[in-house]
Write a protein that binds this DNA or RNA. Structure first.
Lengths: 151, 151
DNA sequence: ATGATATAGTTGGCATGCTAACTAAGTCGT
DNA sequence: ACGACTTAGTTAGCATGCCAACTATATCAT
C-alpha cells in the first residue's frame, strides 16, 4: 500500500507552480500599489458590479469575514464604494470608483502580459487536456469534503 | 491582442484546485490539532532532520522570518527542538521530538489517504504528462521573475 | 401577528505570510 | 589584525485568512 510516487510529484508540482504564479503576480501589482487579493477583487468587480459582499466572497472563495476587511481597506484606498440596497437593508452593494476602474484596467493589462509570457511556448491543446484533468481532480476533492461533512 | 481564453481557464482551474486541496488538507490536520504549515514542516523534517532554519525555509518556499515564528509555535507545542550547531554558533539545527515524530507519522497517513482518494480514477500517465507541463510553466514563471529582478 | 429561524455584515482573536530593520557571528581582502 | 561584507536568526509592523460570536434585518411557520 505504498503511495504512488507520481501522485506526490503531481501534488508537489501543482503546489509549487501555484505558489510561484501567485508570488509573481503579487510582485507585479505591489509595484503599482496594490496587493494580490485586492487585485483579484478588482478584477472580479470589473466584470460585474453591484454584487453583495457575500456574493463576492463566494466568487473569490473567501469567507465573509475576510471579505469585510479586504473591502474596508479597498474603501480606504478609494477603490470601491459600499452602497445600501433599497430592497434589503442588511445588504451592501459594491461598486468601483473611477479610480477603482482605472486600477482594474491596470490589473487586467498586467494579467494579460503575465499570461502571455507564462504560456508563450505552451500548446493550447495541452492546456485543454490539463484543464479537464484539473477539473476532474477538483471534483474528487469536493467529494472528499462531502464524506467528512455530510449535509 | 485579446487574451487567449484557454490560458485564463487554465489559471483559474489551477488556482481553484490548489486552494481546494490545501483547504481539504487543512481540515484533516486541524482535526488532529495541527495546521497546514506545521504539517508541511513536520513532513519535511520526517525525511531529513538536523536542517538549519534557512534550509527548511528554502525547502518549503517560505521566508526566514516566517519560518522563525512557525518554529516558535512548533517548539511551544513540543513538536520540535532547536539545537545549537557546534561548528557555527549562528546556526540552529531543527530536530523532531518523539511527539513530533508521532505527529509526522499521522500527517503522512492523512496525506496518503487523501492522495489515494483524489487520484483514484486518474490515469498515472496523464499525471506524468501534467507534471511535465506544470514544470515547463514553472520554468516560465521563473524566467518572468528574472526579467524583473536581474542579478 | 409573532416567535423561530435564517441571512448580511461586523468584530475579536489567532495563525500565516511578507518586507524592512536589527543583532550576532562567520568570512574575506588587504 | 582589522574593516567590509555576508549570513543565520530575530523582531516589528502590516495584510490576509480562518473561526466563533455578535447585531440587525428578513423570512417563514403557525
Amino acid at each position: 500500500m505504498k503511495p504512488d510516487p507520481i501522485a506526490s510529484d503531481f501534488l508537489e508540482a501543482l503546489t509549487k507552480v501555484s505558489r510561484k504564479i501567485r508570488t509573481a503576480f503579487n510582485q507585479q501589482v505591489t509595484a503599482h500599489g496594490l496587493t494580490y487579493p485586492r487585485a483579484r477583487a478588482l478584477f472580479r468587480l470589473a466584470k460585474k458590479q453591484n454584487m453583495t459582499q457575500s456574493e463576492l466572497a463566494c466568487d473569490l472563495e473567501l469567507e465573509q469575514a475576510t471579505m469585510v476587511r479586504l473591502l474596508d481597506r479597498m474603501e480606504e484606498n478609494g477603490l470601491i464604494e459600499r452602497r445600501p440596497d433599497t430592497n434589503d437593508r442588511r445588504v451592501k452593494l459594491i461598486v468601483l470608483t473611477p479610480y477603482g476602474e482605472e486600477q482594474a484596467a491596470m490589473v487586467r493589462s498586467i494579467a494579460d502580459r503575465i499570461r502571455e509570457q507564462i504560456f508563450q511556448d505552451i500548446d493550447p491543446d495541452e492546456l485543454h487536456v490539463a484543464v479537464a484533468l484539473l477539473e476532474r481532480i477538483s471534483a474528487n476533492v469536493t467529494d472528499l469534503e462531502d464524506v467528512d461533512v455530510p449535509a
